[in-house]
């Protein structure tokens, strides 16, 4: 399929070389004095700080809090969006009646809700949830609407003429058709939800990784700031990988995944 002239193993080697190059660069630049160490600590210092932080319970608690906010918010948004999306998609006329409202509410940046969350909940998990749910809800909803609209009308009429009730139609026809779209929505929403979870902690001060970064920054612990940012990146990668894995599992019956697996 791909026209890269080399195989997976060489790609891996090149990729590792790239990462090593980044580490070497971050190590060399402050050591050679090109950038002051106070602003950019060498890579070994950053990684050592990260290792030391990882040995403390506080960091794991913060990490857990971030992940709880992320997972809970994502789950709430997901179920709400799927339920509402399927209803809007099925009930005739509802799609047309809601289009203008959805198109208006969707582009509202969720950080606009920061002051409201602060006012209502203060620095707490609820604030995080408000932002995370709002941001990820639309990502899933739009995909659910696409998915329900993609149901083959002949298949739909067939199901009706065979006397499938509305629940069976949702269960056996609409849900499987919409599932690939729903999973795309979930993947997009998972990334956005993580960004918003960290943002809420950073700006509002809800407990979690973001709040730790904020504390480290205001106390001038520069290597800790870098270490926590690296950790946030690693968690972000973990989130992406986990959702992709879930997508493959859930859609293993789907032709798009099956054809990918055989090539």
């Amino acid at each position: 399929m791909s026209r890269t002239p080399f195989g997976a193993r060489r790609r891996l080697l090149y990729g590792l070389a790239g990462l090593a190059g980044l580490l070497a660069l971050v190590e060399a630049v402050p050591r050679l004095g090109l950038v002051d160490e106070r602003y950019l600590p060498p890579a070994t210092t950053i990684l050592a700080t990260l290792a030391r932080e990882l040995a403390t319970a506080g960091l794991w608690i913060a990490l857990g809090e971030t992940l709880i906010g992320w997972a809970l918010g994502l789950a709430i948004a997901f179920f709400l969006a799927v339920a509402i999306g399927v209803v809007i998609g099925i009930v005739p006329g509802l799609r047309a009646a809601t289009t203008s409202t959805i198109e208006f509410l969707r582009p509202i940046p969720s950080v606009a809700l920061v002051p409201l969350a602060t006012l209502l909940y203060g620095p707490s998990l609820s604030s995080t949830l408000l932002l995370v749910v709002y941001a990820s809800f639309w990502q899933v909803l739009i995909q659910v609407l696409y998915g329900v609209a993609a149901v083959d009308s002949v298949a739909y009429d067939t199901a009706r003429s065979y006397g499938l009730g509305s629940w069976s139609r949702v269960r056996h026809l609409i849900w499987p058709t919409a599932l690939p779209y729903v999973m795309t929505g979930l993947r997009l929403a998972a990334a956005v939800a993580f960004i918003l979870a960290v943002t809420a902690e950073l700006v509002i001060g809800s407990p979690g990784l973001g709040a730790e970064i904020q504390v480290a920054q205001s106390s001038g612990a520069v290597p800790a700031v870098y270490a926590l940012i690296v950790l946030a990146g690693l968690v972000g990668i973990g989130v992406n990988v986990a959702v992709r894995f879930l997508e493959r599992r859930v859609l293993s019956w789907h032709p798009s995944v099956r054809s990918e697996a055989t090539t």
Binding site: F194, V198, T199, L202, I229, A232, G233, G236
Partner: peptide, 13 residues
Amino acid sequence: FFRAIPPPVLVPL
């Protein structure tokens, strides 16, 4: 890796 870092954490940095 850089893409996976949530951009708002770059603000304090």
